[in-house]
């Protein structure tokens, strides 16, 4: 399936996020090879240049490394993955809080509602 993309964020960053999520969920295992740029482009329905850029960004973040003639590999770096997990959580929380404040929910109510919601889910 091709991926759907949000309109306000660069596509390459959304691909970076989705690969990081795959790694966090262990769908993409540490020390294993990522699909080639072409395979990933076909899989996601995205321009190969965009995938190349996403891989470059992941390399800059030290999540992957490119080995000449072999491809791009996920690095086995538990500390970094923990950091990424934390920063992703932070981003989600920020969005949640921002949207709740926008519709006039106080901090206290926010916590209470979240608590209620989670209890309801159990």
């Amino acid at each position: 399936m091709s991926k759907e993309f949000q309109s306000s964020k660069p596509i390459y960053m959304q691909i970076v996020d989705s690969i990081v999520i795959d790694i966090l969920q262990n769908k993409q295992k540490p020390a294993e090879k990522l699909p080639s740029v072409r395979e990933m482009a076909v899989k996601m329905g995205v321009n190969p240049n965009t995938i190349q850029r996403a891989y470059g960004e992941l390399e800059r973040m030290n999540v992957v490394e490119t080995r000449r003639g072999q491809g791009t590999f996920v690095l086995d770096n538990a500390t970094l993955l923990d950091e990424l997990k934390t920063s992703m959580q932070k981003e989600i929380i920020e969005n949640y809080v921002e949207q709740m404040l926008e519709i006039g929910v106080s901090n206290k109510d926010m916590i209470e509602q979240l608590q209620n919601y989670l209890e309801g889910c159990e």
């Binding site: 309109s7 964020k9 660069p10 596509i11």
Partner: peptide, 15 residues
């Protein structure tokens, strides 16, 4: 550039 539109202006091509 499509990615520049998104990155610097926060808009999709259609917008």
């Amino acid at each position: 550039d499509v990615e520049v539109l998104r990155e610097e202006h926060g808009t999709s091509v259609l917008e």
